[in-house]
Nucleic acid binder design. Structure first.
Lengths: 141, 141
DNA sequence: ATGCGTGCAAATGTTTTGCATTTTG
DNA sequence: CAAAATGCAAAACATTTGCACGCAT
């Protein structure tokens, strides 16, 4: 099941109306392999002949994030990045940010996920999400 | 050994001069239990009768971070937070950010650290640092 | 004396908000 | 038609930069 389909199901269930700007953002995110920032989204849409209001982009991102449809990735460069969050944690992963060129490298590791699960249980609080960021050098740097 | 002493040793070795603003920031950070943002630092210094230029605060934070004396914590609220990084990774820890009240709860977990070490090795790239953020509800929320 | 450290103000860049307009159901 | 979605411009933030001044060495 495509992420965009999942999004539509969730949003319809939430009684949210249709909207062009939203479709453009959803479609772009769905086609992307890596996390995008609001600014990057704005530029891409501009460049592909579907200019979209900046405010709308931010509002769409907020809406999707509020419904758990987006994962937020913070690499600490002053802008938030977002990528599709699939149901059941499918394709769930984390990132290595290269300190040389800023590239984002995705990876996943079941062992790490288990460790996070254990510590979450140990802390005795309800943990709804997590984020792991490694800093280092990518293959080229 | 106090963190501030460690800072002075490192900075002196780096040939950095003395400065009042810097001392104020270092002293404040050393006394703090939790990570502070630049804005919070500015306010605290203001409130304790030692007003300090905003630019100086940012420059001090950058200097300390560049020398590996600060750990950066990004909770995704649009501002960077910093806390003392002690030599040898002493007191190294991670955070849970409460989605209810925004509180930061520190925790550490050797098991988690080992898992991160393993995945770093497995990726075959040089990993110089890492950050884990849990999202959830703190004890009160 | 030579610069590094500082502080102010202005610039920058991202994100948010107010409001008029268009679109959806 | 009523409510929601959109787009623009301006505001609100955090952070950075330029520059003049003062203090450390």
């Amino acid at each position: 099941m495509r992420w965009s389909d999942h999004v539509h199901v969730v949003l319809r269930a939430a009684g949210v109306r249709h909207g062009e700007a939203r479709e453009r953002v959803i479609s772009l995110l769905d086609a992307q392999r890596c996390a995008l920032s609001a600014t990057e989204i704005e530029t891409r849409l501009q460049d592909t002949g579907q200019p979209t209001g900046r405010a709308s982009i931010y509002r769409v991102l907020e809406l999707l994030a509020d419904h758990g449809l987006l994962e937020r990735v913070d690499v600490g460069d002053g802008q938030a990045r977002y990528e599709p969050a699939r149901p059941g944690g499918e394709h769930h992963h984390h990132h290595l940010v290269c300190e040389g060129c800023g590239a984002l490298v995705a990876f996943d590791d079941p062992d790490l996920e288990r460790a996070i699960g254990r510590v979450s249980r140990r802390l005795g609080v309800e943990v709804t999400g997590h984020e792991v960021l490694l800093r280092g050098a990518c293959g080229r740097c």
